[in-house]
Write a protein that binds this DNA or RNA. Sequence first.
DNA 1: TCAAAAGTGTTGCTGCTACACCCATGG
DNA 2: CCATGGGTGTAGCAGCAACACTTTTGA
Lengths: 240, 240
Amino acid sequence: MTRTATLPDIRPAAPTAGDATRVAVSTVIFTLRRDRGADRASVVIPLVRRTRDPHEGLWALPGGWLDVAESLDTAAARTLAETTGLAPSFLEQLYAFGAVERSPSRVVSIVYWALLRSDEVIAADARENVQWFDAASLPRLAFDHNEIVDYALWRLRNKAGYSRIAHGLLADEFTLAQLREVYEAVLGRRLDPANFRRQVENSGNLIPTERFRTGSHRPARVYRYNQDVELADRGPLVRH
Amino acid sequence: MTRTATLPDIRPAAPTAGDATRVAVSTVIFTLRRDRGADRASVVIPLVRRTRDPHEGLWALPGGWLDVAESLDTAAARTLAETTGLAPSFLEQLYAFGAVERSPSRVVSIVYWALLRSDEVIAADARENVQWFDAASLPRLAFDHNEIVDYALWRLRNKAGYSRIAHGLLADEFTLAQLREVYEAVLGRRLDPANFRRQVENSGNLIPTERFRTGSHRPARVYRYNQDVELADRGPLVRH
DNA sequence: TCAAAAGTGTTGCTGCTACACCCATGG
DNA sequence: CCATGGGTGTAGCAGCAACACTTTTGA
């Protein structure tokens, strides 16, 4: 459970032959951070500092080796928990990266991407070697991980257009302003509150509650997601 | 060049240890077939008959093992050429399948999908063990390949909505009726000729030529694709 | 009473669908 | 000249962006 938080050791290890191709699993985890004072939330991702040689000291995506007896989905969830302690509400395969020269030895990385609700973030912060970075301004990462994060960000923004991606980033109950803030952070632009309200109300994804959240000004109605409408954008692929 | 056309032998082979996870690459190749007399074209894919034990005799997707010194993209193109003789104009990664029980030994398959232009199909037909099937009515395939084809079909239809997918299925020059036929076959429904024309003309993807194709009735203008407008739907991932 | 966010109404633009209609060619 | 597909015109509807406007609260 408390393995060293690091990407797999790339040096030829015991279980496999030295020249064989090995399969790793990594995950890009998105969540939002509301900086006090900042007028907009920003997209942040957790990275792990490498403690072994290829790219020692650089930051890298959390991940690990695929076990012989576990599926890719399971491996993604497991390595994520081991390196960061996180258990995201949304976890989906992103892309398989397999360029020959992306690592000193031959590694094919099956990369996942994940969304973390604001109330799930807490656990990870205490971890040694884990740190959160603003996705828009990352340092140089190990391997091809900068490229991977760029692709994941592109996918996040893309999917926000036609899917209920915000579900994975919010707690169960929320106001429309909070929901709008999520979309604004992901898309990187302001949205008209009036039009946003109508769009989201007409989508049928939201259920209004009778509760109100009282803040600085007029109280806002609290909504929750309609669990029936499951986003069918993974096609015929069944989960679990 | 003329290896036996078959999926990789799944039995533990020489190069790798018996219990290691191995990486295979497979491809779902789509093209259109115009049946004489039929009023609509249909989507067909080439399959390879397995000549070795796991699922011997069943039809399977063309593919093979990933070499240690080649990228995933290269492996997809190579195994495709070796098993079917085809070199598609469009080749893109689809998904990585890695359930534990999808094969007797542990195999992670990186699956690609490809589009073949009607003028590229010829070469493959002569192959032993290669046969074309209507994508809508497949027999039981080896491994989890039925599920894989379903997913690829879903992706094809999805992408047809927002992308110039037909480019990969047509020759360089074509009439609007031919282009429309492609979309009708992929989407599985009729499209209004008048509205289709306007949509596609306004998209800016087509360049009208001065040539006309004279058929049974009024000659139709010949178009070709605007090469400048490259479909930017793979995001920041650069090819080659 | 004032600022600011919550929430409603309205207008105009755009893109799409449906369908009527004209054009050009082979038979 | 007629059947058929190529190609144009147009009316209606739906969705969305822009923005004016009303409501409700804390300070």
